[in-house]
Write a protein that binds this DNA or RNA. Sequence first.
DNA 1: ACGCCCACCTGGAGGC
DNA 2: TGCCTCCAGGTGGGCG
Length: 273
Amino acid sequence: MPELPEVEAVRRMLERATRGARIDRVELRRPDLRRPFPPDFVSRLTGHTIQSISRRGKYLLATLSSGDTLLVHLGMSGAFRTERRRASSRISPPADPHDHVVIALSSGVVVTFNDPRRFGLMDLIHANHDHAALRGMGPEPLDETFDALVLARACAGKRVAVKVLLLDQRLVAGVGNIYASEALHHAGLSPRRRASTLATATGTPREAAFKLAAGIKAVLQKAVAANARAYESGRFRVYEREGKPCARRGCRGTIRRITQAGRSTYFCPACQK
DNA sequence: ACGCCCACCTGGAGGC
DNA sequence: TGCCTCCAGGTGGGCG
């Protein structure tokens, strides 16, 4: 469940479950996810302590006592679960064929990474180095560094539909297909609108840029506060609500689904202009 | 640089 | 029951 709010919920869970514990054992059940694990992956994790878990966009970063950072992306279907180690076995049994990585901690907690589609990613970043995946990533949408001005500058001159541009992690980090639709609905903007219409030619924000920046912050903030439980409860305003009435107060529109850049977009033609 | 398309991989849902 | 097609929340490479 991997857009910013879902990744943030995973971060909180992992931080509670792993912080301060030493990695006693790492088991790779296959040689790769989306890409192969680095050759020294297991040895560079084993014996080191997890100091903190942070997040950048949709990436999780575990800072280790060695100075290395474990980088994780959940892809489309990646998930972590944690459990107390069984007294009888050193490591949890291979219950699921998609349990690809099993990490046993000194605390007795076992962390398992499960990912059926295997679009996930794990890599190690050496101390004081950066990583190609994080280079060029846009600002955190919930930081003050992200606002209408930043958004407008990124939109200026772009002919692409604004919804498609929102999926570009170089513009803003962590927005995916669900929250792109939700943010545009919140802002009352059509997903089909050209990105360039949010800014003047020189990148000065128009009214729509203020609305969209606020919409992105509002939907993400709300989802983070709810610990990203909206997906399970189906509590979105437009996402997967094709044919249902628009949830906006006073709007009599019906939610439509269209395809943009090969992905589903949901919106209300009546109140999103 | 930009915008578009496709591939990566598995599983679930729905049609016939 | 089975077989087919389509769809899914992400990313990145390649093409014109």
